Simulated scan of single mutants.
Amino acid sequence: MKPAYASYVCGAVRIRTLTEADLRETLEWRNRNGVRQNFKHSAALEWNQHHAWFLSYRDKPDDIIFIAEHVASGKKVGQVAIYSIDYAGGRAEIGRFVAAPAFQGKGLMREAITGLMGFAKQELRLNSLYLEVIETNERAYQLYSKLGFNEVERKDGLIFMERSLNGDVQQ
Rank of each mutant, 00 (worst) to 15 (best):
R24H: 15
F39I: 08
G118E: 15
M109L: 12
G34Y: 03
A99N: 10
F66A: 06
R96Q: 09
Q37M: 12
W47H: 07
G78H: 04
A88C: 09
M117D: 08
D63C: 13
G11K: 03
R14T: 10
I85E: 09
I85H: 07
D86V: 11
D59E: 12
G157Q: 05
F103P: 02
Q79T: 14
Y144I: 14
E20T: 12
T26V: 02
E153G: 10
S84T: 06
N33C: 10
A140E: 07
A81V: 01
Q170K: 09
Q79D: 11
Q49Y: 06
G95Y: 05
D63P: 08
T114F: 05
S84K: 11
A112R: 00
Q79K: 13
A81M: 06
W47N: 05
N48D: 15
F66D: 09
R16L: 10
Y87A: 14
A120K: 02
A112F: 03
Y5M: 00
H51E: 14
G11T: 14
K76G: 04
Q37C: 04
S73M: 04
V152W: 08
F119T: 09
I94K: 00
A120P: 03
Q171F: 12
R139P: 07
N137G: 04
D168V: 08
E153S: 14
V169K: 14
D86Y: 14
V133N: 06
G118Y: 04
T26A: 07
S42K: 13
Y130I: 08
P61H: 01
G11C: 04
Y130D: 05
M109R: 13
K146S: 08
K60T: 10
D63T: 09
R32D: 06
A140H: 06
A92E: 08
Q49K: 11
I67S: 12
Q142M: 07
R139Y: 10
N48P: 09
G11N: 14
E20D: 11
V133K: 05
R24D: 05
F66N: 12
Q104F: 05
K60V: 01
R139H: 11
A44Q: 15
A92W: 04
V77C: 07
C10H: 07
L18V: 02
L143H: 02
T26P: 03
V133Q: 07
M1W: 02
I159N: 00
A52W: 07
D62M: 15
L124Y: 06
S42Y: 15
A72H: 08
Y130R: 13
P3G: 09
T19E: 14
N166P: 00
F119V: 07
D22C: 14
R163S: 12
I82C: 06
Y87K: 13
K155Y: 15
A88D: 04
R125V: 00
V80F: 07
A81L: 06
S164R: 10
F66L: 13
Q122I: 03
I134Q: 01
G148C: 12
H70N: 15
I15D: 02
F39L: 11
K76N: 04
G148E: 13
N38V: 00
Y57K: 01
D86N: 15
V35P: 02
A68D: 02
R96H: 03
R36Y: 10
K40S: 13
F66W: 12
I113F: 01
E132W: 11
N31Q: 06
K76P: 00
M109K: 09
S128A: 13
L158N: 08
R91W: 10
N137W: 11
R139T: 14
R30D: 05
F97W: 06
V169L: 06
G95L: 08
R36D: 04
K106D: 01
A44Y: 09
